[in-house]
Simulated scan of single mutants.
Amino acid sequence: MWKPPTVIGPATKKATRPSNKLPQSLIDGAKIAKKDIFDPEKHLNFQPPASVYTMEQIGLKGHGISPHAATEPFPLFTEEAIRQMRAEIFDEKVLAECQYSSTFNKNMVRGMGPARAPFTYDAWKSPEVLEKISQVAGIDLVPSIDFEIANINITFRDENEVEQTVNLMPSKELSAVSWHYDSFPFVCVTMLSDCTGMVGGETAMRTPKGDIMKVRGPAMGTAVVMQGRYIEHQALKALGGRERISMVTCFRPKSPLVKDETVLVGVRGISDLSELYTQYTEYRLEILEERIRHQLKKEREREVAKKPFNIAEIKRFLTNQKLFIESVLTEIQEVD
């Protein structure tokens, strides 16, 4: 039986705050006069991607939960929406409570939640936004858990550093994040920085045959959707510019009947474990509940129709739920 790819997480085992401070200019520059509430008519700027790569194209036909692998960057949010999100990310309370660091990323903001970041939270919970994300993903999706709304990766150049011009040769490209698989079925990576003058920043995908395919780097307000749980990929470094801030929002299938091979390996060491485990357990139990209700309905309908009991079908269903429960037990771990 085919198994999903193994996810390798950061060496960081416990939530750790960054040791390097963010530039004050970054924080001051994110301040806005008035905070707004998310309005899709005002803040959504969706245009379909020019192209969508399929799982078949990258040699993974039949794998994952959708035939869609990854999109080219596409417009998603207006500049005003990005300003509102940045204002929440660089808010003093958020920075005091939601900064994380790992061996993969030195500076992250995670787990802001609806109280600290209502605009960002409402944006990713918006039916209009979810409709567009699902459209390009080729399957109905919902945010994985609230703690993953959202993960913001922040890289910046020291303000005293002299900018250098770097010529990238194909064989010498630098990676911002090493080759990896994601913990969640789908991700949406939204660019929150002005990328004018930047070089690089592509997402590279490696096929089972070892070939490399690239998706060009996004511009501010644009996004890339990828089935990252099943595709080996890495982010290439973007050179030029003083900052690169990207927002990664994780998604899972909306239907409880679709397989969900979410793992916590990649996020356990960069999360508040109580929040993470609570939200993860709750949604997994909800899936189990819906699956049992669905199967129970089928059984009652079978009985009314006076059809014979199907031993093989029930055993298959129960075995799948047993494996599902065992996967939850595997992910909920004590961390020393």
Rank of each mutant, 00 (worst) to 15 (best):
D182L: 08
M169S: 10
T196A: 14
A137P: 07
E131N: 08
E163H: 12
V177W: 00
G210N: 05
T203S: 07
I133R: 06
V187M: 09
P170G: 09
T155F: 00
E131P: 00
K214L: 07
S144L: 07
A176K: 04
L130T: 03
I149L: 15
E173N: 04
D140E: 15
F186Y: 14
D211N: 09
A204M: 01
G201K: 08
L130G: 05
A137W: 09
S171A: 14
A176V: 00
M205H: 07
I145D: 08
D140C: 03
I139N: 08
S175K: 06
D182V: 05
E159A: 04
T196G: 00
K125Q: 15
M169Q: 12
M213V: 10
G210H: 05
K172C: 03
P143T: 11
K209D: 14
E148I: 01
A176D: 08
A176H: 08
E161L: 06
L141M: 06
C195M: 15
V177M: 10
E163N: 09
D182I: 08
R216Q: 13
V177D: 01
V129M: 14
D194M: 03
R216I: 08
T120A: 13
S171Y: 12
V189S: 15
C195D: 07
E128S: 10
P170Q: 10
C188N: 15
T196S: 12
